[in-house]
Simulated scan of single mutants.
Amino acid sequence: MRVIEIEGGSGPAEALRPADRPDPVARAGEVMIRVHAAGINRPDLLQRNGVYPPPPGASDIMGLEVAGEVETVGEGVTRWAVGDRVCALLGGGGYADRVVVDARHLLPIPDGLDYVQAAVLPETVFTVFANVFEAGGLKAGQTLLIHGATSGIGVTAIQMAKAAGATVIATSRGADKTAAARALGADVSLDAKTDDLAAAIAEAGGADVVLDMVGRDYAELNLKALKAGGRWVVIASLSGAKVEIDLMRVMLKRLVLTGSTLRSRSADEKARLTAAVEATVWPWVISGAVRPPVQATFPLERAADAHRALEAGDHVGKFVLTA
């Protein structure tokens, strides 16, 4: 099968190169998927640069989500059959023609969605559900503040929060992205380049939950923005991970600061999340309420171009590799 490898194990986008490897084999409890589309995520860039290695036992090939057809079913798998259209959360291996995955980590592709649309769902939907709804406890009638609102995670968070009956305050950079966040459903869409974010968020009533992908530069803003009992959920730290916090303010507001990664969770925990996502989020996907936009697609052999496009930061939504 064709795969994308990283020359020397890490490096710039130019280090990505097509290669051939033997097809994987589905063992008991696994299925092999013929990949039609693979979502590209920022952790892929980190892995390429040598700072986010795959967990033990995972493929060294990049790619955390795919959509395709079930090609082989391992012993003991009863839900899935050859030919089923599925998308899946992976620990790695998505930048390839075929991938083997724990059968418990698959979801059916709803009618009306093509493989490209389905490929952008697992990593972002799982991340938002685990962090915003489980760790952050977002409920209908509450307000979610999203930083980086036009990223793959951001656009998915806007749609999921709105589907759950929450109010969304979105921050992004530039008039085009601000307009895009508003079009996706954000109730308040702020331009981090020109708006007084603290004043505008306060005028909007503050936030019950903050989904933070920025880190250090927005720490003070988040402390101001959160209402009493608010939850600050960190899933990335693009501006830096070292932050100085006034704990007295945390105590006085009764705030919760939490964060997580998805890739390193156990297979059993990912299976639990898959079932929860199918029960809670998949009805929103089926109804069309959650359909993260795709900025562009690239054939598998042009993975380097896709990485460069993601690094440029001018996108709304996600990039996808196609077979």
Rank of each mutant, 00 (worst) to 15 (best):
residue 265 R to I: 08
residue 265 R to L: 14
residue 265 R to V: 06
residue 266 S to D: 07
residue 267 A to K: 08
residue 268 D to V: 13
residue 269 E to A: 11
residue 269 E to F: 14
residue 269 E to S: 06
residue 269 E to V: 11
residue 270 K to Q: 12
residue 270 K to D: 09
residue 271 A to T: 07
residue 271 A to E: 10
residue 272 R to A: 14
residue 272 R to E: 13
residue 272 R to S: 08
residue 272 R to T: 14
residue 273 L to V: 13
residue 273 L to I: 15
residue 274 T to I: 03
residue 274 T to C: 07
residue 274 T to K: 05
residue 277 V to S: 00
residue 277 V to C: 01
residue 278 E to P: 04
residue 278 E to F: 04
residue 278 E to V: 09
residue 280 T to R: 15
residue 280 T to P: 02
residue 281 V to L: 01
residue 281 V to G: 06
residue 282 W to K: 07
residue 282 W to P: 03
residue 282 W to M: 15
residue 283 P to K: 10
residue 283 P to C: 13
residue 286 I to S: 09
residue 286 I to T: 15
residue 286 I to V: 14
residue 286 I to L: 04
residue 287 S to V: 05
residue 287 S to M: 04
residue 287 S to N: 08
residue 288 G to M: 06
residue 289 A to S: 11
residue 289 A to M: 05
residue 290 V to H: 01
residue 290 V to N: 01
residue 291 R to Y: 02
residue 291 R to P: 02
residue 292 P to V: 04
residue 293 P to K: 00
residue 294 V to W: 06
residue 295 Q to G: 00
residue 295 Q to I: 02
residue 295 Q to C: 04
residue 296 A to D: 06
residue 297 T to H: 00
residue 297 T to R: 04
residue 298 F to N: 09
residue 299 P to G: 10
residue 299 P to A: 13
residue 300 L to P: 05
residue 301 E to Y: 05
residue 301 E to F: 00
